[in-house]
């Protein structure tokens, strides 16, 4: 069947633009990304020992009371951060469970402070980063709670 001339140009152009924008473009970006940013391009994976235990960008569940806990509500449902005031409010419980003093835990939290407006605004911290720091710094307390 012959395609009427009126439709042949837009049909061919549709196919050309699909290959250009939908295939070539993402594949080229993937190639550049894998070479230039090997860590970021696969989701900023967090490691413990030699194992990948998640991504710093995606919240994971913590049940044991020795850890800081992420929040359950939020827009994405996987918010990896909590505000510093939220973190402070969790410190007494963690101190009880670990025997670490509140001062040590507050110092730890303060090391990981970030700001919502880059250099000002609300203070927050990444839950997984702080928990992995605690695990690596106090293996005697934490190794028991970490899965093999």
């Amino acid at each position: 069947m012959k395609i009427p001339e009126k439709f042949s140009a837009p049909l061919r152009m549709a196919l050309v633009s699909m290959v250009l924008c939908g295939l070539l473009f993402p594949v080229v970006v993937t190639g550049i990304a894998e070479v230039a940013f090997p860590y970021q391009s696969v989701g900023e994976q967090a490691t413990l020992g030699n194992h990948t235990v998640g991504s710093y960008l995606i919240a994971q569940e913590f049940n044991a009371s020795v850890f800081f806990h992420p929040r359950n509500d939020s827009a994405s449902g996987v918010d990896p951060d909590i505000t510093i005031s939220d973190a402070y409010s969790q410190i007494p419980g963690i101190s009880n469970a670990t025997g670490l003093s509140s001062a040590i835990l507050m110092n730890t939290v303060d090391k990981f402070v970030q700001y919502t407006m880059i250099s000002f605004g609300t203070e927050y911290m990444n839950v997984l980063k702080v928990n992995l720091y605690l695990i690596n710094t106090y293996p005697g307390i934490y190794s028991h709670y970490v899965s093999g």
Partner: peptide, 28 residues
């Protein structure tokens, strides 16, 4: 490219199933 540098993934390798710190499964 800037966005990847800032942490936005770009990969065609499939989703990644990992074991979290406490041992549950998580799909990246």
């Amino acid at each position: 490219v800037v966005l990847v540098g800032l942490g936005v993934p770009q990969s065609l390798n499939g989703y990644l199933l990992v074991k979290t710190v406490e041992g549950s499964s998580q799909m990246l």
